[in-house]
Write a protein that binds this DNA or RNA. Sequence first.
DNA 1: CGCGGCTTTGATGTTCATCAAGTAAAGTGG
DNA 2: CCACTTTACTTGATGAACATCAAAGCCGCG
Lengths: 230, 230
Amino acid sequence: MKDLASLSCRDCINSASLFEGLSFEELDYLVQHASQKSYKKGDIVVKEGDLVNTISFLKCGLLKVFKKSPKYHDQIINLAKPNDCVGLLSVFSSDRFNYNLTAIEDSVLYSIEFSALKHILFTNSSFGLHLLKSISNAADLIISQTIEISKKNSRGRIAYCLTSFAEEIYHRPVFYLPVSRKEIAEMIGLTSENVIRVLTEFRRDGIIAINGKTITILDIERLKYVEKNG
Amino acid sequence: MKDLASLSCRDCINSASLFEGLSFEELDYLVQHASQKSYKKGDIVVKEGDLVNTISFLKCGLLKVFKKSPKYHDQIINLAKPNDCVGLLSVFSSDRFNYNLTAIEDSVLYSIEFSALKHILFTNSSFGLHLLKSISNAADLIISQTIEISKKNSRGRIAYCLTSFAEEIYHRPVFYLPVSRKEIAEMIGLTSENVIRVLTEFRRDGIIAINGKTITILDIERLKYVEKNG
DNA sequence: CGCGGCTTTGATGTTCATCAAGTAAAGTGG
DNA sequence: CCACTTTACTTGATGAACATCAAAGCCGCG
């Protein structure tokens, strides 16, 4: 049983682009300092202020990364999908998480002790460069997404949201929405009422079909047009 | 003359927190692969798509970091102040700049060849960790600023903008605005008309005084209240 | 079975963008 | 140095987009 778990850890680490270029010995070392943990939909994975002592990435499932706001709604920063590194930013910038993580699907997380990662970093500096690239990319992505979103109107934002579910996360035109309308609103800076209104509009226009939480994208071209010109 | 230039480079590198913990030899090595360049207000420092082969930081002056938009206005991402590392994100995430840099005050930039930095990185891995921290912090800051701004109304955004000029950049309540009203608008996602309207409001409310491009903050408490509750 | 949260729709209001028009300032060429 | 052009700034009027408020139906869950 222990071996199976190790094995799957090893597989997971092998497949993570973050660890490309490491030797077998280094990978083994990481596996020996790694563990996996499962979370049910709705479970809290990390709370803002929690100590960071591992670097984690998502094997399967979906997490929402968000900041709590005392007065307003929460602000969802992005969704972490399988193979994404979780909290890559926080790991280095402080010893505590700046964000909250919650599972919005049943999820499995692989965690490598930060000290083990540092050990590799100290003995293999090209790994450091690799890490730098990964972090820069992750940050660049979040920044440019946020900027792009903020330039769009409500229709453009919803279109953006739907296409990324279909293309980035589920890789198919029919999917079960893992988030509530309110959470969509928190992702793209709208109110839940307006999210609903735009979704209804898209349905009436024949761009999508809605069945509760199941969305079918009927006209991806039109959706992308709206995303671009919204 | 050459020695003087070296010396000032050395001073500059010494004072940059990025290079804390490096040995004298390592610092010397960096200095030997560094150069400085001056820019006049309005000069283009870097264009989106330019090759990145140095890592630079601002000795003095002020730069605006922005993305061009074909249809809309430009989007100003942040302002780089003295001692800020410029394009720290782009350096590692790609071999080309993702952003434009323009001097909005007369500025002096120190640039270290990226290859020299890599050399240090390969021989000193704690420097890698240090770099990771710097990049994470820079990214974290931009992300949280962008999120904070997007939650505020127009008054809150202008208040944010004014307090950061007074406290982060100029460290005094009276300052000459280095940017046009239009550029303020591009920083905080408003139109120039509304920037002007809110500034006039603040003036009428006795929160600030305006004399062309010179702003005097009369009531910082009230300004911060507006920033917080806007 | 009833409570609370999520969803939906409609009515209303606020905020901000857009349009328009005029003034001030700053750069340009003779 | 002055006419000329252009760009920045300012104010008002109008409209569109989105938030807010309200009410009702739905669903899941203790």
